[in-house]
């Protein structure tokens, strides 16, 4: 492997200071190629993980994936037509003297992307959440994106599919972001009035104000294996009560047992399940 050659080459340079940087550089390289699976603790090759839809080949742990990766395995090739407008934060609180706004603008995208898509030939409006943008948190812009996704569904008579991955409401936007919890419910109301179904796919994590608004308001709720789905997370519970919750606390499987979600669906089966539902819904009179 090239790593070996690099070690020999650098060894010729000799000094102790160099030894440290060699280790760091090797470590960086290893991190680029391999990642430790939080499910089983084993090292997994990143390229292999991508090929297996982010599911650990050893233990089946579902790693967090990007919006592009999700669209890639879920939708029919080339069918995801992303809405063109770019909706960004207006930083209503002028948080941290504009530092938050600069960070958000540099990212240039929000924690949700939406558009029309097809799953096994059945069309829907898809709203996919992006955990890499402020932990997938719901800003006022995300509220607006979700509202537009609902409106697009009403306009075209299409069902809505939301892939949720969010820590909750965005703290940096305070009460204006909190109000989006209500705002999205009004948008869903219009979808209901048009008698259009709404499917949500809850991924890890689906928490806080996002869990307590549109994510759990769906007609059919699917969840990824092991996904944390809750209003208050285990850390908040521990801080408040001083008791550490069990490891399976508020995980998808325990929600299924308690009748809170309809099905736990591993990634490789999601196309089949969601495609089947959409096909069923499209047969309505």
């Amino acid at each position: 492997m090239t790593g070996q050659g690099e070690i020999r080459e650098r060894r010729a340079e000799g000094s102790a200071a160099c030894a440290d940087s060699r280790i760091v550089s090797l470590r960086d390289r290893a991190r680029r190629l391999w990642t430790r699976c939080p499910g089983c603790g084993l090292e997994v090759e990143r390229s292999g993980l991508r090929a297996s839809l982010g599911v650990c080949p050893h233990c089946g742990f579902h790693h967090r994936i990007s919006v592009g990766e999700r669209a890639g395995y879920l939708f029919d090739p080339g069918s995801f037509r992303v809405a063109d407008e770019i909706i960004l934060t207006a930083d209503p609180l002028c948080f941290q003297g504009g530092a938050y706004r600069r960070e958000a603008q540099e990212l240039g995208r929000e924690a949700m992307a939406y558009g029309t898509a097809a799953v096994r030939g059945s069309s829907c409006v898809a709203a996919l959440m992006d955990f890499s943008v402020f932990g997938g948190s719901m800003s006022a812009a995300v509220g607006e994106i979700f509202r537009r996704a609902c409106a697009l569904g009403v306009e075209h008579g299409l069902p809505l599919l939301a892939a949720v991955c969010s820590g909750g409401v965005r703290v940096q936007e305070g009460a204006p972001a909190l109000m989006q919890m209500a705002r999205v419910m009004f948008a869903l109301e219009e979808l209901s009035e048009a008698r259009l179904p709404f499917i949500s796919l809850l991924c890890d994590p689906s928490c806080g104000g996002v869990a307590a608004s549109f994510a759990t308001a769906a007609d059919v709720i699917l969840a990824e294996p092991g996904a944390l789905i809750c209003f208050s997370g285990p850390r908040v519970v521990e801080q408040t009560l001083g008791i550490k919750p069990e490891p399976d606390f508020s995980r998808a499987e325990s929600l299924l047992e308690r009748g809170l979600v309809d099905m736990v669906v591993p990634r490789p089966r999601q196309r089949e399940v969601i495609g089947g539902l959409l096909a069923f819904f499209s047969e309505r009179g």
Binding site: G78, D84, E85, P92, A113, S132, S139, A140, R147
Partner: peptide, 26 residues
């Protein structure tokens, strides 16, 4: 009343409506 609670900023896209642009996804 709730629709008015919109605190966002819109950057217009290259063209109105939808376009095939899944390549733009992160």
């Amino acid at each position: 009343r709730y629709r008015r609670l919109a605190f966002f900023h819109e950057v217009p896209g290259d063209e109105a409506g939808l376009s095939v642009s899944a390549g733009r996804l992160p």
